[in-house]
Amino acid sequence: MTDAPYSVAFDRASVHFSGSDAPALERLSLHVEPGELLAIVGASGSGKSTLLRCVNRLVELSDGCVAIDGRDVRTFELGPLRQSIGYAIQGVGLFAHLTVAENLALVPETLGWTRERTNARIDELLAAVRLDPPTYRSRRPRELSGGQSQRVGIARALVAHPRLLLLDEPFGAVDPILRPHLQSELLAVLREARTTTLFVTHDVDEALLLGNRIAVMRDGRLQAIGSPRALLEAPPDAFTAELLCGDELLHRYRRARLDEREGRR
């Protein structure tokens, strides 16, 4: 891994979709350190996904700027920019007409990797997400369970050593029993990958478990940002308190889990 993780900076970034009065993103400023895992939480329609998609330019800003390593994303060539950023969405989006290995090989092929290098990387990643390479390489997405497809989706996002990872509710479609397992697996894989990660989720517990910091979104604005500890101990406003802490019991439970998480490290 020769390439250092990206830093990401939003500077008064705004997005207005045509046909909608309220902006999807309104003058949002935010800095993500290299190697950081920022979890983004908020209600549906709060602009979480839009925030993510501004970075790889699936959505173009109406105003303001998003910069990677201090450089405006609009000055990058689109293909290479996206190839250096891993992206996985809810439900993964594996191509059903390609096998697992072919899905993973799409970006390496584009980058002109040799077949040996691509294959070695595919095996390495499948093993990392605990899918036995000889068994799963030639499977079609249809033959995978929900959890397995999620793993392949994350492996595909990581395949070309991305310097930034954008994950949009990657566990959104996984059954709750499987989630904790996938979450801890993701943490392990990310630690290995040493990349910057923006992680959108509507699951507060997931954000508390995974994030170095948590950004709370509301109506296209950044409502609060801080470490899980800081936000849980002293939520800066009523909305954040309501969202993160919930009632007394839930609050206590979440703090206990956070203690446990930080104790483990």
């Binding site: 290479p80 950023i85 191509f95 092929e109």
Partner: peptide, 21 residues
Amino acid sequence: VEQREVAAALGLPPWSRRLRV
């Protein structure tokens, strides 16, 4: 739409996206 978007987000060049996806 999701599929086209994923293909775009992977950064596949136009012809590769058309032929492979």
